[in-house]
Computed example of a mutant assay.
Amino acid sequence: MDDIISAQESFQDIYCMFYKKVYRIAFSITKDVHLAEDVLQETFLKFYQKAEQIEDMEKISGWLGTVAARTAIDFLRKEQKTPCPLDELSISQGGNVEQTAEYEWLKETISQEIRKLKPKYREILELKLYYDLKEQELAQQLKLSKGTVKTRLHRARRTLKVSLKDAM
Rank of each mutant, 00 (worst) to 15 (best):
D3T: 08
I4A: 08
I5T: 09
I5D: 08
S6N: 11
E9L: 14
E9Y: 11
D13R: 15
I14W: 02
Y15M: 05
C16K: 13
M17F: 09
M17L: 14
Y19A: 04
R24Y: 07
R24I: 06
I25P: 01
A26S: 15
S28E: 11
I29K: 02
T30M: 06
D32A: 06
A36S: 09
D38C: 02
V39Y: 01
L40K: 08
Q41N: 10
T43F: 05
F44L: 06
L45F: 13
K46Q: 11
F47S: 01
Y48H: 09
Q49A: 12
Q49R: 15
A51H: 13
I54Q: 01
E58F: 07
K59E: 11
S61R: 09
S61T: 05
L64A: 03
T66E: 14
T66K: 14
V67I: 15
A68Q: 03
R70E: 14
D74N: 14
D74I: 07
F75I: 08
E79D: 09
Q80G: 08
T82Q: 10
P83A: 01
C84Q: 01
L86H: 00
L86I: 01
D87F: 00
E88F: 04
S90A: 10
I91Q: 04
Q93E: 08
G94I: 14
E98L: 12
Q99M: 13
Q99V: 06
Q99F: 07
A101R: 13
A101H: 11
W105E: 13
L106G: 04
L106T: 12
L106S: 12
K107S: 01
E108V: 12
T109M: 14
T109W: 00
T109Y: 01
Q112H: 10
Q112M: 11
Q112T: 13
E113D: 07
I114P: 05
R115H: 11
L117G: 07
L117V: 09
P119I: 09
R122A: 06
I124V: 08
L125E: 02
L125C: 02
E126V: 15
L127V: 05
L129F: 03
Y130G: 03
Y131P: 03
D132M: 07
L133E: 03
L133W: 03
E135S: 13
E137D: 09
L138W: 01
Q141H: 06
L142C: 04
G147I: 04
T148I: 03
V149H: 06
K150C: 15
K150Q: 12
L153M: 06
R157T: 08
R158I: 10
R158L: 15
T159P: 00
T159R: 07
K161Q: 13
V162E: 13
V162G: 00
S163M: 11
L164W: 12
L164Q: 10
K165P: 00
K165V: 14
